[in-house]
Structure formats: structure tokens, C-alpha cells
């Protein structure tokens, strides 16, 4: 008797759960299609709206090529620098006790919590012609704002938490015993880092580098403030897309956007692969 009742109750809760489940799945899926897939599809359709020829000629315009070059250059400078910084910060935070450690952890997150436009404005205020160091730079004929150095600096600031944020929890969890063991066996600090630490953190590090790179190439807000939008000079790919769009050059705008979208898809695939690798790695611990 009691089993019959409980079975009935069980079934009715299951039905409820089913109803809730299917409506939630529908909402989530609908959202993804409407706000992620449709726009992506639209980008591709618009890019190819005047045929393949127009698409490729848009991509080979000098301004477009210069924008791509600048985006690549920016990523090439900022990603390695932030990788080194991220590893150093994670190492310092997880391996040493020092005053102000909590403050450092909070500061690493600062670029995440400040609006990118504000970050860009801060750089203008500090390095711009009317800024604190502006007159010194003008005297020495160094251009930071509305030039490539400003773009690199702003991107550096925006992408600076990615690597450190990935490594800190992992290195905290791993502890330092293996490194101490290597040292006690006579390994130098560098050998310990390359032979013991790096193999243990490599997947998390690659993951951080990947996210850092995606953001470095895709950043708009902060870069937009410091760049000055000089065509063929200080336009990164995202900025070039905006400029082209505002000038009703749809094919150009969407061709650029398609490159960025392709980058996003590649990033997503690599990210999934790395997550899977990391999980396999942790499971073996």
C-alpha cells in the first residue's frame, strides 16, 4: 500500500519535473538561437551579400589589412607580457606570505570590475597631451595616446587578469610540496619551475593565454578611447568594423566581423579541448 502511494507521488513529481525541464530547455535553446546563432548567421550572410569576390576584396583593402596587422601586433605584445606577469603573480600569491597579498589579489581583478571605456579614459588622463605626464612626452616627442603604444597599454591593462586568475586556484590546490621535493633533490629554482611547476600548470596556463588572446584581439571600449580612429594607422580590427559600418560599407564591416567571429569560434573549440584536458589532468591527481 505504502509503496503504491509513494510510487504515485514519485511519478507525479517526475511529471512536474519534466514539464519544468522542457520549458527551461526551450527557453535556453531559444535564447541561444535568437541571440547567438542568428546574429552569427547574419554576419556571414551580410559579409557574402555581394558575392565572394566583394568579400575577398574587402578583406584585402589596405585599411583592413593594416587593422588586422595592428590587432595581431597588439596581441603579440600583450599576450606574452601578460603570460609572464600572470605566472609571476600567481607564483608570488600562492608561494609566499607577504603584506598586502589580499590587496594584490583584489587589484588583479580591477580590470574586470572597471568599465573598459573608463580604463581607456584613465590612460588618456595619464598619458594624453593634457594629462599628468603629457607635457613630458610631448617634449620628448613620444606619442602614446592616439598611437600604437596607447592601444597596447590599454589592451595590456584590460587583459591582465586572465592568466593569473586561471593559475591562482590551481596552484593553491597543488601546494608547493613537489617543488620543495625538487629543490631538496638539488634542482635549481629555474629547473624546478620548468620541470615540475610548468608541466603541472600547462593546461590551465594555455587556457588563460587563450582567453587573454581572445580578449586582446576583440577589445573595443578601452582601445576605442585611446586610438583616435586614424584609418590605416590606429584602427584595430574591431574599430575598423565600426568605422566601416558607420560609413555604410556593409560588406567591409561584416567581412571584418566574420574574421572576428571565426576567431571566436576557434577560441571556443580550443577552450573546450583545454577544459577537457585540464579535467583529465586533475582527475589523475
Amino acid at each position: 500500500m505504502s509503496t503504491a502511494i509513494s510510487k504515485h507521488v514519485h511519478q507525479s513529481t517526475l511529471e512536474d519535473a519534466n514539464w519544468v525541464r522542457w520549458s527551461l530547455i526551450t527557453i535556453a535553446l531559444g535564447f541561444v538561437i535568437l541571440f547567438l546563432c542568428v546574429p552569427l548567421l547574419l554576419v556571414i550572410i551580410q559579409a557574402f551579400s555581394k558575392g565572394f569576390g566583394a568579400y575577398f576584396s574587402a578583406l584585402s583593402q589596405p585599411d583592413m589589412l593594416s587593422a588586422m596587422r595592428l590587432t595581431l601586433l597588439t596581441a603579440l605584445i600583450t599576450v606574452p607580457l601578460n603570460t609572464v606577469f600572470g605566472v609571476a603573480a600567481a607564483w608570488a600569491i600562492t608561494r609566499f606570505e607577504f603584506r598586502g597579498k589580499d590587496l594584490l589579489i583584489t587589484l588583479i581583478d580591477l580590470p574586470f570590475s572597471v568599465s573598459p571605456v573608463i580604463s581607456g579614459l584613465i590612460f588618456v588622463l595619464v598619458f594624453g597631451a593634457q594629462g599628468w605626464f603629457g607635457s613630458w612626452f610631448v617634449e620628448h616627442d613620444i606619442k602614446i595616446i592616439f598611437a600604437v603604444p596607447g592601444i597596447v597599454l590599454a589592451t595590456l591593462f584590460i587583459t591582465f587578469p586572465f592568466v593569473a586568475r586561471q593559475l591562482i586556484p590551481l596552484m593553491q590546490e597543488m601546494g608547493s610540496e613537489e617543488e620543495e621535493a625538487a629543490l631538496s633533490l638539488g634542482a635549481s629554482g629555474w629547473k624546478t619551475f620548468f620541470l615540475i611547476t610548468l608541466p603541472n600548470i600547462k593546461w590551465a596556463l594555455l587556457y588563460g593565454v587563450l582567453l587573454c588572446n581572445a580578449r586582446a584581439m576583440g577589445e573595443f571600449g578601452a582601445v576605442s578611447v585611446v586610438s583616435g580612429h586614424i584609418r590605416g594607422m590606429t584602427n584595430t580590427l574591431p574599430l575598423h568594423v565600426e568605422v566601416s559600418y558607420n560609413e555604410y560599407d556593409t560588406v567591409s564591416a561584416f567581412a571584418g566581423a566574420s574574421i572576428l567571429a571565426a576567431l571566436a569560434i576557434v577560441t571556443l573549440i580550443l577552450k573546450t579541448l583545454l577544459e577537457w584536458k585540464q579535467q583529465a589532468n586533475r582527475a589523475s591527481v
Partner: peptide
């Protein structure tokens, strides 16, 4: 070490 600290990789 107490927890051996073998190099896991």
C-alpha cells in the same frame, strides 16, 4: 615528505 610529494607527471 608526509604526503610523499611524488612528481605526478
Amino acid at each position: 615528505f608526509q604526503h610523499y610529494a611524488l612528481f605526478r607527471h
